[in-house]
């Protein structure tokens, strides 16, 4: 019998090239953030100079602080509401407007951000809301809760329902069964959802630009306005710090999903 070889040379080459393509640019950015030279492309030896420069830059620090607060607040609200949405979709029976509900949850995953941003801004203007921390937080919550809902829903879908049934057969009220059986089982997916929401919020430029007000720029907005003027080594340093923060978040999230996979199937689709 002739066997199709499982891993051809072509497979290996495309994998290696693909991963190099994904990682080299980020690696180069990180290395050059430690460059002593002002010219981004000339190597002048290792130095932490641009990190000091960042910590002296009040506007950048303020923007970072704003971004972190928005990310924590919006990720937390999004995780609460997104988890509720996931439970409703995977455990609720058919209810009126269910198609519209799931439609509204899945559409923002791919909706161009210029549309979401513009429409939210027009709402805030119509409501006469003062634009700043809360408008950006609400906007980010609206986007990221959809990602949380998908991650948690896919975990709920792969869960063995006989556990919930057993709890209820043994006399648990539905709410009790949910809190003491289902919730611990989906907890890793909820944690992963929070992390994803956090990084998405930290990253967003377009929606934040539309929904923020004067004087409360987020970090991506500051970075963007600097990048438009050209490459600056200080930006490399800031980007490296953001990457480091996200790396910590990823490690925590993967620990959470390891916990989840040891209890069943792996959770996150993204």
């Amino acid at each position: 019998m002739r066997k199709v070889s499982r891993l051809s040379r072509f497979n290996v080459a495309s994998l290696a090239l693909g991963l190099a393509f994904l990682y080299l640019p980020i690696l180069i950015l990180v290395i050059y953030s430690f460059n002593a030279s002002r010219l981004v492309t000339v190597w002048g030896g290792w130095s932490l100079r641009w990190y000091y420069e960042f910590f002296d830059d009040r506007a950048m620090i303020e923007a970072s602080w704003m971004s972190l607060r928005v990310a924590v607040a919006s990720a937390t609200i999004a995780t609460l509401i997104g988890t509720l949405a996931a439970v409703a979709l995977s455990r609720g029976e058919r209810f009126r407007g269910r198609t519209l509900f799931s439609g509204m949850l899945y559409a923002p995953l791919v909706m161009p951000e210029v549309i979401t941003g513009l429409s939210l801004l027009l709402l805030f203007v119509a409501l006469n809301a003062e634009r700043g921390f809360w408008t950006v937080t609400i906007a980010h919550t609206t986007l990221t809760m959809c990602f949380v809902a998908v991650v948690v829903q896919s975990r709920l879908g792969s869960l063995d329902r006989s556990l919930e049934e057993a709890a209820m057969d043994l006399g648990c009220a539905p709410a009790r069964a949910f809190l003491s059986v289902t919730l611990p089982l989906i907890a890793p997916a909820i944690v992963a959802g929070w992390m994803l929401a956090f990084t998405l919020s930290l990253d967003d430029l377009v929606i934040a630009s539309f929904t923020t007000g004067p004087g409360s720029a987020t970090l991506p907005i500051r970075i963007y306005s600097e990048v438009r003027l050209g490459v600056k080594p200080e930006i490399n340093a800031i980007c490296t710090l953001v990457i480091a923060l996200i790396a910590v978040v990823i490690v925590l999230a993967s620990l959470a999903s390891k916990l989840s996979s040891s209890r069943g199937e792996s959770a996150a689709p993204l």
Binding site: L80, I81, G82, L84, A85, V87, A88, L89, R91, G92, E93, F95, G97, F101, M104, L105, T141, T142, M145, A149, R161, E164, E165, M168, P174, A175, A177, F178
Partner: peptide
Amino acid sequence: RIFARPARFAAIAPYVWM
């Protein structure tokens, strides 16, 4: 059907929000 009824209530907050 388990949780069907309470799960329907879970839809309220995200529904209103969206």
